[in-house]
Every structure is written in C-alpha cells, then in structure tokens.
C-alpha cells in the first residue's frame, strides 16, 4: 500500500503536473498554428518571459509588505498574463504581421520566430543573467500531506501548493477556453478561421481581430504556464526552451490546430515521461515472496534512465510524425 502511494506521488502527481504545463503551452502553439498556419517556435520563450514578468511583479508586491495566504507569484499571475498578452500582440505586430502582409510563406514565419526566440532569450539574460531565481525567498513553499485512514499506511499523499494551484488553474483555463471556443461569437469565429480562412473572410469575419485574440490567448496561457512551472520548480532563463519541443510534440500528437487534441496530447506526454522514468521495481517489491526463486528484482527497473527523460517526448514526437503526422486524435474535436 505504501508503495502504491509512492507510485501515486511520483508518477500520477508528476504526470498531472507535467501534463498541465505541456497542455497550457501546447494549446497556444496549436491555436497559433490553426489561425496563422505556422509553427511558432518562440512559444517556449514567451513562457519564460511570462515567468519573469510574474517574478518582477511578485518582487514589487512583496516590497509592499502585505501578507498573502497564497504564493505571491500566483496572486500576480492575472496581471502578468495581461502584460504578456500585450507583449505577444506587440511581437506579432513588430515581427510577424509585416511578413504576413507581404504574403510570406509559413516557413519564413517559422524562421522569424527563431529570430524572436533569440531576441527574447538575449533580453532575458541581459536583465536577469543566467542564474536561477525562486519565488519562495520571502515565503515558504507549502507542502500538503494527506494521511490516508488505512491501517498500515504510513506514507502520506504529498504535493506542493504550487502543484495544486497549477492543476486548478489548468482546469479553469481549459474550461474557460472551451466555453470561449464553443459559446462566444469570437471564439466561434476563431474556429471558423482555423477551419477555412477564405470562407471566414467571405463571411465577413474580422480576421485581423481573430488574429489579435489568438495572440492574446496564446500569450496569456504561455505566461500562466511559465509562471506555474517556475513556481513548481524554479525560474531560469532557459526554463521553457527545453520544454518547447515537448510542447510541439504534444500539439502534433493532438493534431496541430486542434485545441482539445493539444490538451490531451499534453497529458499523454506528461504521463509518458513520468511513467517511463518511474522505477517499477518499487511496485514489485511487495510481491517479493510470491515471485519465483530465479526472479530477482533489480534495483532499478525503469523503462529509460532519468537522464533521458526529455528524450521520451522527442521519441514519441518522431514516431507520431512518421506514423501519423495528422495526430492521434484527428477528427475527435475542434
């Protein structure tokens, strides 16, 4: 039983947390792809940027000396999301919109997004150096432990407050996005444009407005994801750069352009990663006495060594690209 709880703490909670981050990022990537038809490579750095915006705001708020029951980094997230959305709009206006106006191919926009990636990275490191920052210098990070009322169970289910907040805000974001896309006029316009941009134009849908809304949503979600990731782990300039590939993997897994697919893809990858590095021998140990003599439980019985954790997503990505480039959830939604 204790081992099961260990499994739950390690694999399930880890998978949900990682999956939430991936899902939030992948939704942005997939929306941008659906509307503007290019792979926005700078998305990972928009996440990092969002994390730093929150960090600066949190610093300001902490300076005011007010005590909050929640992490300050979380309290300031709505404001940071607003700023990040504005920045996303600015980046589009400054770097992508002129290329679109010229009728540039999506590949050109992809290369431009590499340029944007480099600029954001350069700027962040210019101002913040290459060090690691923590949101919890002025506040303790709360750990939740839930003791289970069973006999013989000593190990509690445990997770941190940022992890709980991450999952809650992911749920809120996903539900809000769902209502936006299916109920609101603009959200439907967005789906229409992703479905058939020419017909959307013919219907009189204000495509420029839709593009702006897309950037606002993508920027805000990227900021949310970046901040929550930073709260859970720590804030580094290359925080999300390593994560941009798994995010693309998630978006492709779900079928580029499909919002729900991206969310599902994010969770699939999150679980795949944590389960792949999980040491399964832990779960075998209780059956030690029932196993045949010759079978000796190895100390580590994980599918891949933890050094290769990140590559799990890439391998899945490459396999999906080769076997089914339209994504595994095609036709399911959006």
């Amino acid at each position: 039983m204790n081992d099961l709880i260990f499994f739950f703490n390690q694999a399930i909670i880890g998978g949900v947390v990682l999956g939430s981050i991936y899902a939030l990022g992948a939704v942005g990537v997939t929306l941008i792809f659906g509307i503007l038809r290019f792979a926005h490579f700078a998305h990972g750095d928009m996440m990092t940027l969002g994390g730093f915006i929150s960090f600066v705001l949190a610093g300001i708020v902490a300076g005011l000396g007010i005590a909050f029951p929640l992490p300050i980094g979380f309290i300031v997230v709505p404001f940071a999301m607003l700023i990040a959305a504005g920045l996303a709009l600015g980046i589009d206006k400054g770097f992508y919109a002129p290329l679109r106006a010229r009728g540039a191919k999506p590949v050109t926009l992809l290369i431009a997004s590499i340029g944007v990636t480099m600029m954001i990275q350069g700027l962040i490191r210019l101002f913040f150096g290459v060090g690691t920052y923590s949101f919890f210098d002025t506040q303790p990070k709360v750990l939740h432990r839930i003791e289970l009322p069973f006999e013989g169970v000593t190990r509690p289910i445990s997770f941190s407050e940022p992890q709980l907040l991450l999952v809650i805000s992911t749920i809120i974001a996903v539900v809000a996005l769902h209502y936006f896309l299916t109920r609101s006029r603009l959200g439907k316009g967005m789906r229409a444009m992703a479905d058939n941009p020419d017909l959307a134009k013919v219907s009189g849908i204000n495509t420029k407005l839709v593009v702006r809304v897309t950037w606002i949503i993508a920027g805000a979600l990227a900021c949310l994801a970046g901040t929550m990731l930073a709260l859970d782990v720590s804030l580094k300039p290359d925080l999300a750069f390593n994560i941009v590939l798994p995010i693309f993997a998630a978006a492709i897994l779900g079928g580029l352009g499909h919002a729900y697919g991206a969310i599902a893809g994010g969770f699939v990858l999150g679980f795949a990663e944590t389960l792949a590095v999980f040491n399964w021998s832990v779960l075998l140990r209780p059956f030690r006495d029932n196993l045949p003599e010759w079978f000796e439980i190895p100390n580590t019985l994980s599918l891949v060594q933890s050094e290769y954790k990140l590559t799990v997503a890439f391998v899945i990505l490459v396999v999906v690209l080769l076997v089914r480039p339209t994504g595994i959830f095609k036709g399911a939604s959006t």
């Binding site: 010229r102 540039a104 050109t108 431009a112 340029g115 944007v116 990636t117 480099m118 350069g122 290459v130």
Partner: peptide, 23 residues
C-alpha cells in the same frame, strides 16, 4: 556576463530585419 548575452539578441534582431527588408 551580460555582454555575452547581447550577441544572442543581436543575432535575433539581424535575422528578423533581414527577413523583413532583404528576404
């Protein structure tokens, strides 16, 4: 240490400018 990072920014700027004005 900050100056080292400038070059990454410069590269990004150079490529976006090139794409826009001398594709």
């Amino acid at each position: 240490s900050r100056a080292v990072q400038m070059r990454v920014f410069v590269m990004g700027l150079v490529v976006t400018i090139a794409l826009r004005f001398a594709p």
